[in-house]
């Protein structure tokens, strides 16, 4: 593993791979992030309103709850769990396939530090892209909530807009971005590990990719508690 985190011996090679990974791991995740965020924002707002129909609660409650849930957990933790599935399995199966077809051995024979060459651009690219995905998700989640006001009579858009601006804590955004970058690191490095050390055939690549997703997700949940304890206490 130590061999992953050394300076690339050929900077040219790193910068040849890096933009490709930004695109594959970051940009190509935008559609799924967008769809999930809008729908979850919508349903969360609807549920919150329907389940807190106490007239004593102030009008801003729904917007506030939606916003803070998005900021604190959904757009970081839950989004990362979803991306652990998409990106984690992608990384593990790509590297795993290269392992079992001996392309990694071929790189090594040509004097390439394969761990560094294959893994580092992926980790860096995903960690760099993650904050953008999170902010994108927060924005679209709030837009999703707004549509509850537009499309239904459960809630007025006015109340919602007041709610999402009420008692806004900018630190929550920072906390969420920090957290998500750590999760991005976990997802990509765990997946790379399982891919890189797979052995056998196509079936074993499948197993590596399942292991990457399951163990990546568990680690995210565990670190979520740890980070929250450190940062919000």
């Amino acid at each position: 593993m130590k061999r992953v985190f050394v300076l690339p011996d050929r900077r040219k090679m790193f910068f040849r791979q890096f933009p490709k990974e930004l695109e594959k791991l970051g940009l190509q995740s935008l559609p799924i992030v967008a769809i999930i965020s809008v729908f979850i924002g919508f349903i969360m707002t609807m549920q919150t309103k329907l389940n807190t129909s106490n007239p004593l609660l102030p009008v801003y409650t729904t917007g506030l709850v939606t916003r803070d849930t998005l900021l604190l957990e959904f757009s970081s933790t839950i989004l990362c769990l979803i991306l652990a599935g998409k990106v984690g399995s992608n990384i593990a199966s790509e590297i795993g396939t290269m392992r079992i077809t001996e392309q990694i051995d071929a790189l090594e024979i040509m004097g390439v530090n394969s761990a560094n060459y294959l893994i580092l651009p992926k980790i860096v690219a995903f960690v760099v892209m993650m904050p953008f995905l999170v902010i994108f998700s927060m924005g679209l989640g709030l837009v999703g909530g707004y549509f509850v006001g537009v499309l239904t009579s459960i809630l007025t858009t006015g109340d919602y807009l007041v709610g999402i601006q009420y008692a806004f804590v900018p630190f929550y955004v920072f906390y969420s971005l920090m957290k998500s970058m750590i999760f991005a690191f976990i997802i990509s490095s765990v997946a790379a590990y399982y891919g890189y050390y797979s052995y056998g055939g196509a079936l074993d690549v499948g197993k590596a990719s399942t292991n990457a997703v399951v163990n990546g997700s568990i680690l995210i949940l565990f670190f979520n508690i740890l980070i929250t304890k450190i940062m919000l206490n």
């Binding site: 077809t101 001996e102 392309q103 051995d105 071929a106 024979i109």
Partner: peptide, 11 residues
């Protein structure tokens, strides 16, 4: 060193 792999291992 040159090596020819069993499955060719072309990129």
């Amino acid at each position: 060193v040159g090596m020819l792999f069993q499955g060719s291992a072309l990129f």
